[in-house]
Design a protein around this nucleic acid. Sequence first.
DNA 1: ACTATGACTCGAG
DNA 2: CCTCGAGCCATAG
Length: 108
Amino acid sequence: MPKHYITQVHDLARLIPKGRVSTYGALADYLSLGSARMVGFALKQIDFLDESIPAHRVVNSKGELSGRLAFPTPDTMQFRLSREGTIVEKDRVVRFKDLFWHPKELDE
DNA sequence: ACTATGACTCGAG
DNA sequence: CCTCGAGCCATAG
């Protein structure tokens, strides 16, 4: 099992603040390695039972929960988000633009 | 070394 | 709102 890229994505994902969401592209952008597709690929490797990695806070560029089908049940992602106060409607994060978080904020 | 495969993205029509 | 095409690049086989 390879590690470098996948662990980098996982470690970065852990930094997404509770109540905020980020995107595949933003994480890939910050790592300046791989691509948005790779971020999705890396997140998919997460053990379903491992909730220490907030993979549910990663959505696509439109704020849609495109990764929801990779969770234990199709509504797990939305459940975890709503549980921390992030509202989701029609598989989309409400007020996505306001909740969007880019890892570059770490450097500011 | 080569091909296929994505939890993607962006721009054009 | 939608579809299409091109670019993306680590991994798996």
